[in-house]
Simulated scan of single mutants.
Amino acid sequence: MRNEATSGEESSHGDTVLVVIDVQTGFEDAAYWGSGMPNDAVNHVSRLLADWAARDRGPVVVVRHDSRDPASPLHPSGPGNALVPAVADAAADLLVVKHVNSAFLGEPSLDVWLRGAGLSRLVLCGIQTNMCVETTARMGGNLGYDVTVVLDATTTFDLVADVPGLGRTHVPAAELARTTAVNLAAGGFARVSDTASVLAE
């Protein structure tokens, strides 16, 4: 990945920032993550990156999750921490490295960089829909950014948890993604769109 800028200098291109969240090879480890959504999210992310470059739509921010859990496929010591080739090869204006869900809590500060460049429109895509993408969208909305989440350019995995009052609960990935879309749209955190609509803008 070519990191073209690391501070908030003004950009000469468009004003909509494409934020690509945690599209890392470690998410291909089905034994670790379990069942996932059978969608084409990574290809859609690639299409968005290509469109941003071809039409000079605005800066690209790439986010990478460096897990602190040595057993995680996303731990920096393992090959799964690497970005997938389409993202690694993209010309990005900023690389944000984080250890938690929100891209706004990584290094360098995404909020400081965006405000320094006078940028307020964000288009989010990546992994996982209901975790890092949703958390980033919620925080971005709360911080006053105009946020769009490209739902079919995200993906996630089934969740199973022991929940007091509910017992052992299993929620399929597709239902988690649907709930994320409703949470974001109904809560006013972000618009929810799809790749075709964003490419047609």
Rank of each mutant, 00 (worst) to 15 (best):
D69T: 10
D69A: 13
A71I: 01
A71D: 15
S72K: 10
P73S: 07
L74Q: 10
H75G: 00
P76M: 01
S77Y: 00
G78C: 00
P79C: 00
P79K: 02
N81R: 12
A82K: 03
A82I: 01
A82F: 01
L83Y: 03
V84Q: 04
V84Y: 00
P85G: 07
A86D: 13
V87Y: 06
V87Q: 02
A88F: 02
D89I: 04
A90E: 04
A90H: 03
A91P: 04
D93K: 00
D93L: 01
L94D: 08
L94S: 06
L95W: 13
L95T: 09
L95H: 15
V96G: 07
K98E: 02
K98W: 07
H99Q: 11
H99Y: 04
H99N: 07
V100Q: 14
N101G: 12
N101L: 13
S102I: 10
S102D: 09
F104T: 05
F104S: 06
G106F: 11
E107H: 11
E107S: 14
P108G: 10
S109N: 03
S109H: 05
D111R: 13
V112F: 12
V112R: 15
W113L: 01
L114D: 04
R115E: 02
G116Y: 09
G118V: 01
L119K: 07
L119D: 06
L119S: 08
S120C: 04
V123C: 08
L124H: 03
L124P: 04
G126N: 05
Q128F: 08
T129M: 03
N130F: 07
M131N: 13
C132H: 13
T135C: 12
T136W: 09
A137I: 09
R138Y: 09
M139Q: 15
G140D: 05
N142P: 00
N142R: 15
N142G: 09
Y145K: 05
D146M: 01
D146E: 15
D146C: 04
T148A: 14
D152W: 03
A153G: 04
T155R: 15
F157I: 00
D158A: 08
D158G: 09
L159M: 13
L159E: 08
L159I: 14
L159H: 07
V160K: 08
V160G: 07
V160C: 03
A161R: 15
D162I: 02
P164Q: 11
G165L: 06
G167M: 09
R168V: 14
R168E: 13
T169K: 12
V171A: 07
P172E: 14
P172C: 10
P172V: 15
A173R: 13
A174P: 03
A174Q: 15
E175C: 01
E175Q: 12
E175N: 04
